Amino acid sequence: MEELSGIRKAAILLLTMDEELSAQVIKDLDEDEIDVIGQEISKLDSIPKDVATRIHEEFMRKVQDKSNFIVAGAQRFRVLLNKTFGEEKAEQLWESAKTYEEKPSKFLKTCDSRILANMLNKEHPQTISLVLSNMDIKKATEVVGFLPVKIQSDVMMRMANLEKVDRKIIEEIEVVLKEQLESIGVVDGRRLGGVEVVASILNQLDRTLESEILEKIEETKPDLAERIKQLMFTFEDLLGLDDKSIQVLLKEISSEDLSMALKGASESLKEKIFSNMSERAAKMLREDLEAMGPVRVSDVEKGQVKIAMIAKKLGEEGKIMLSVQNEQFV
């Protein structure tokens, strides 16, 4: 009978186990492992019943033969990876499948890379290298990218010369970093508040209240007020959109909301909207505006805020290009 590889056995085992159990196993695999097994599964046209039975029996036999405790489990697992995937692939998998003692805490894994880099920038390069060495490759790469260029090479050299470090030292560093971040308004690696949050809130207030708040801020912190304005996106900022973006936006909003919002818009913005509609649609919209009569300012502002928020969402999704206070982003 043909000797099957470990990967093929794993593929057959997954396909012939109970679906719920297979799903649980797949959840514990990383993307590389899923990819390798997936490729093997794609090669399987059919699975003879006697082959499936033999693999199940082999699996159960190996499980039952093990003692209650597995000694040096990490080393054993690494050997198994080498035998199954080869040394190069096994090394990659090992990096993402280290034992708990070698993994970074949840805090380091979830903390925003830019925020973490800004905090580490104040630490000694040796400390930075210790922290980075206990992250997965992808996260460490992101953090290094945000570090000042002048210390990047120093940190890399120190990492290269690191020996095994007591996990307690890393934990102590993590605790200090977390406390420092929390003291400046960062919880679980996420900043609370910030200029971006303020701009988003003001965007959704009525224009009168928004203006009052911005004026108060401007009286004492003109630079901060300017930063907030640059991050805000208002209905009149639609003037900065190109024709294609306007056309995409028009498909996402209702005629009722558009009519209400345009009731209080500048003539230049109205013409911008009309020019991106069919002649018939533009004519109908003009007639609706003329027939609408007086409306509450608050209703107009609500309509404008709603459309501005839709435009901002489309911009964040990369579907249109926004332009705010001469700043462009997609």
Rank of each mutant, 00 (worst) to 15 (best):
A265S: 13
G189C: 08
V149E: 15
S133N: 12
V165R: 13
R61P: 03
E91V: 14
E215A: 08
E95G: 05
K283M: 14
E252A: 05
D288S: 09
P125Q: 04
N121L: 09
V305Y: 02
V197L: 10
V300L: 09
S22H: 05
K306A: 12
A282M: 07
L250E: 01
A282Y: 04
E20H: 12
L322Y: 03
Q24Y: 14
L147P: 01
L322M: 12
P125A: 05
I173S: 02
K106D: 15
D18I: 07
V300R: 04
I128V: 11
M1F: 09
K319N: 11
D35L: 14
N118L: 13
M277R: 06
S245N: 01
E31L: 11
P148D: 08
T220I: 13
L224S: 03
D188S: 10
K109M: 14
E226R: 14
V195P: 01
D299L: 07
V195Q: 04
K312H: 03
D243Q: 09
F85H: 02
A160D: 07
K83G: 09
D243C: 02
Q328D: 12
T127Y: 01
E256T: 05
L269K: 00
S133Q: 02
E142T: 05
A52M: 07
A11T: 07
H56E: 06
V295A: 13
E218W: 04
K103L: 15
L239K: 00
P294H: 09
H56G: 05
T16D: 08
R227K: 11
S5R: 12
D299T: 08
G193K: 02
